[in-house]
Write a protein that binds this DNA or RNA. Structure first.
Length: 851
RNA sequence: GCGCGAUUAGCUCAUUGGUAGAGCACUGCUUUGACAUAGCAGGGGUAGUAAGUUCAAUUCUUACAUCGCGCACCA
């Protein structure tokens, strides 16, 4: 289970994610597998800290009022009260993870795993401390990783500023910038080495306006002659590109902003303490007064925003801890290349590769309090000692200092939450202890998650899992889509189009929501959900409920001794065959993570085969006098319904469990686990139970009834009118069938009688062609003959069209020569049948016209 | 700019190198004793455009168009 945020409440994305996992878990348990579905939550460092700080703010307090210790106590208190919300919501959905094994990323064991991993990676030089530009969140006062920064398009301006040239009062170099307030941190002006406009200026100095500081004009490929003015100011301490330029030219890195993104002491005195945007206004006003603004253009630019704070992120030059992600990524890439871990659908593999191959050092330190505090201690000389405990750090320090009792200060920062989440596949199983669980359940079979956290989580679990366990954390990663609203819009609070899964559950039942989500979870497509869809699925559960009630009323209970293979009646053999096919289809679909296919097979069987045909077929049998047959029908019905409930159970656990109890003759689900559907083994129905002859026989009956119904409707025969039907030139098998199923046919086609007939067709009869036979409905008195003429002509047209098509194909020598024989043969047969049908239809038309 | 996906019935989406399917919606009929949250029947598609491969293309290839998403760049 991708551990949801401890601060979170269940949204539709969780509902989809958890439903799919629960379906798989329940299905695999039924198949006798030893299933571990690991539940838990992560501690969501920044989010949780924000939640608790907001609570404190209500009392007019800040975390600093409480101190670190006090604040953490307060967070734990909050966790105890409110941290279980999402897991209790999951229970309402019917999720069945191993609740007894529930973990939290701040648990003691997981804490130990984090310390161990940190120390080991540090010793392996895969974690290091570095002063680089980081994404600084000026609101939350912490560094964040690249992934936590969202680029948003913003309308801004491009200011063209004139920097005077030293020693030449007449000349200026125009630099274009979107951030004039960072000019106090400028270390150079760069132009492209080949840019003729500026060639003579390279090596000279520009005078930084307002402060009068000379800065070098340098040649660097970074400057694009096409962009802006072709000359660009270089601010190494506040821009990622400029930082690289600065490194190449050994420029000063002057930072001008403090942790609140206010101007610091490197800015001129009158600017100090001004917010970055106020400073911008002041700089521009001053430059305007100095006539140093060449021009201002409107400009659309991408601005970095913190995904939690929503404020503009500031690149800042700071000491932070980093993971050497590039080194760890190499084997994680290879594992996927080698197929040890497989993405489903496979196209996500490319996304994974792209990111992993271009991976940047991962900044893991966060300047907050809630989280795993970094196990690193500093002495007052700036030495750092990384160890799992302070005692060990002391020992390390003693070695350097030559004596014990060195005064050490622990790094106050905590680790990125995803650092601990990355260990989830093994830390939850007890690592670093070599537990039985670890041996039994690592690596996991399947991870089910959304594509939006491939980078955040999947990639990092792969890196850590391979590094510490020597094997991938999971063999398959099933990536599901996003849940959107019915118009395809992403659900968001600000748009107000959020559908709450729990509201839907209350209204239509968890089963309906689960089935809907499964039915819509087609691979590679987003789920467009509406309450209406869930309502329709609720209708489906009602249908199932009513069908089961009918069965119950007719004494169709579940007999455990029932043996499907010894049924004698063809109707029963037929539904058993169809059930066997369904079982196979559902299993195949779930094996391939094709939840929508599984759902649609179940839907089709329930409505069309079981309710509309089988139950209707057996009504006359149950009302008949053949007691042996009645018993067989009752037992078959009870058994088929129960198997159907079982196949539905992983998707719709609640209603199926209850109906199963009814089949056992109980009013409700009892406490005896052996009675529970969810503990029954997945039905094993081999191909040998599929009776092709029975299927063919019942299909003929179905087609016969459907054809008659269709013509009745076409010809406006009143629904209540019982008519006669004659079957002409039928094969011996079909003559027999007409007799065997006479009652069923009469009942379902609303016939007065259905008998065999030969010889001349009565004048004014309606004729239907069914394979080799003619169905004759002598109803001249009820229908308009002209209407029948039109109907027959339409039928003939239809057949002729397809004959023409096939004829074209068959007269193509290339087709006959190159197409596989069976395809040619199949076409020829279709042709023969179609011509046969057309012949009979033409004859029928002739008879009508003669009449 | 790079990459991914989509484009099929009014809507939401399946599908297959061999005459295109479902659900919903729609239309007509039916309150028959499990169910009107239902049943029966029906209409509705040149599968985004263009070219190519093939005996055969909705399916494979290429280009284009439109829409969506991700990544990168942006002085």
């Amino acid at each position: 289970m991708p551990p949801p945020n401890v601060t979170g409440s269940l949204h539709m994305g969780h509902a989809l994610n958890m439903t799919l996992q629960d379906i798989l878990s329940r299905y695999e348990r039924m198949r006798g597998k030893d299933v571990l579905w690991q539940p838990g939550t992560d501690h969501a460092g920044i989010a949780t800290q924000m939640v608790v700080e907001r609570l404190l703010a209500k009392d007019g307090k800040t975390r600093h009022d409480l101190g670190r210790e006090g604040f953490l106590e307060r967070v734990w208190e909050w966790k105890k009260e409110s941290g279980g919300m999402i897991t209790s919501q999951l229970r309402r959905l019917g999720a069945t993870p191993d609740w007894a094994r529930e973990r939290f990323t701040m648990d003691d064991g997981l804490n130990a795993a984090v310390r161990k991993v940190f120390v080991r990676l540090y010793k392996e030089k895969l974690i290091y401390r570095d002063k680089r530009l980081v994404n600084w969140d000026p609101k939350l006062h912490t560094a964040i990783s690249d992934l936590e920064v969202e680029q948003k398009e913003v309308k801004g301006h491009m200011w063209h500023l004139r920097y005077p040239i030293e020693g030449d009062k007449e000349r200026f170099i125009v630099v274009a910038t979107t951030r004039p307030e960072t000019m106090f941190g400028d270390a150079a002006v760069a132009v492209h080495p080949d840019d003729a406009r500026y060639k003579d200026l390279v090596g000279k100095f520009a005078i930084l306006p307002i402060v009068g500081q000379p800065i070098p004009i340098i040649a660097d490929e970074h400057a694009d002659p096409e962009k802006g003015s072709g000359a660009v100011k270089i601010t190494p301490a506040h821009d990622f590109n400029d930082f690289e330029v600065g490194k190449r030219h050994n420029l000063l890195k002057i930072d001008v902003l403090d942790e609140d993104a206010k101007m610091n002491r490197n800015a001129p005195e009158e600017y100090r303490g001004l917010d970055r945007y106020e400073a911008r206004k002041k700089v521009l006003a001053e430059l305007e007064a100095l006539e140093l603004i060449d021009k201002v253009e409107d400009h659309v630019l991408q601005m970095p925003y913190g995904d939690r704070s929503g404020v503009v992120i500031e690149p800042m030059l700071l000491d932070q801890w980093y993971v050497d992600a590039k080194t760890l990524a190499a084997p994680a890439i290879k594992a996927v290349e080698d197929g040890k871990t497989q993405f489903i659908p496979a196209n996500w593999t490319k996304t994974y590769y792209d990111w992993m191959r271009n991976i940047q050092p991962w900044c893991i330190s966060r300047q907050i309090w809630w989280g795993h505090q970094i196990p690193a201690w500093f002495d007052d000389k700036g030495n750092v000692f990384v160890a799992e405990t302070e005692e060990e750090a002391q020992n390390e320090a003693a070695k350097i200092h030559g004596h014990g009792g060195v005064k050490l200060t622990r790094d106050p920062d905590v680790l990125d939450t995803w650092f601990s989440s990355a260990l989830w596949p093994f830390s939850t199983l007890g690592w670093p202890e070599q537990t039985d669980a670890l041996k039994r359940y690592y690596p996991a079979e399947t991870l089910v998650t959304g594509f939006d956290i491939i980078f955040f989580w999947v990639a990092r679990m792969m890196m850590m899992g391979i590094h510490f366990m020597g094997d991938v954390p999971f063999k398959k990663v099933y990536i599901h889509a996003l849940v959107r609203d019915e118009k395809g819009q992403k659900m968001s609070k600000s748009k107000g189009n959020v559908i709450d899964p729990l509201v839907l559950t209350d209204e239509f039942g968890a089963d309906a929501l689960r089935f809907t989500l499964a039915a819509m979870a087609a691979q590679g497509r987003d789920v467009k959900l509406s309450a209406q869809r869930v309502e329709h699925t609720r209708n489906f559960t009602t249908k199932l409920w009513n069908a089961a009630r009918f069965c119950e009323m007719n004494g169709c209970t579940l007999n455990h001794a029932f043996r499907p293979e010894v049924t004698r009646n063809i109707v029963n053999k037929w539904i058993i065959s169809e059930l066997a096919a369904l079982t196979k289809n559902v299993a195949e679909a779930l094996d391939l993570y094709r939840f929508n296919d599984a759902a649609s097979h179940l839907y089709h069987f329930t409505y069309d085969l079981f309710c509309d045909w089988y139950i209707e077929f057996t009504k006359p049998l149950l009302n008949g006098s053949d007691e042996t047959l009645k018993t067989e029908v009752r037992e078959t019905t009870g058994w088929v319904l129960d198997r159907l409930l079982q196949l539905l159970n992983p998707i719709m656990p609640f209603v199926t469990e209850e109906l199963h109890a009814h089949l056992l003759g109980k009013a409700e689900t009892g406490t005896d686990k052996d009675d529970w559907l969810m503990t029954q083994p997945w039905p094993e129905l081999g191909d040998d139970i599929i009776d092709k002859a029975a299927q063919e026989e019942m299909n003929w009956v179905i087609r016969l009834i459907s054809d008659i119904r269709s013509v009745r409707a076409d010809m406006n025969v009143p629904a209540a009118a019982k008519i006669k039907m004659l079957l002409k030139s039928a094969s011996p098998a079909n003559r027999q069938r007409l007799e065997t199923y006479n009652e069923i046919i009469c009942r379902l086609a609303r016939l007065e009688s259905a008998v065999l007939a030969e010889g001349t067709v009565q004048k004014g009869s309606i004729q239907i062609v069914l394979d080799e036979a003619n169905i004759i409905l002598p109803i001249a008195d009820v229908v308009d003959i002209e209407q029948e003429r039109v109907r027959l002509k339409k039928e003939i047209d239809k057949v002729s069209q397809s004959i023409e098509k096939i004829d074209k194909m068959l007269s193509n020598p290339g087709f006959l020569a190159k197409a596989p024989e069976e395809v040619v043969e199949a076409q020829k047969e279709t042709m023969r049948d179609a011509e046969n049908v057309r012949q009979k239809l033409k004859q029928a038309l002739k008879q009508i016209e003669a009449a």
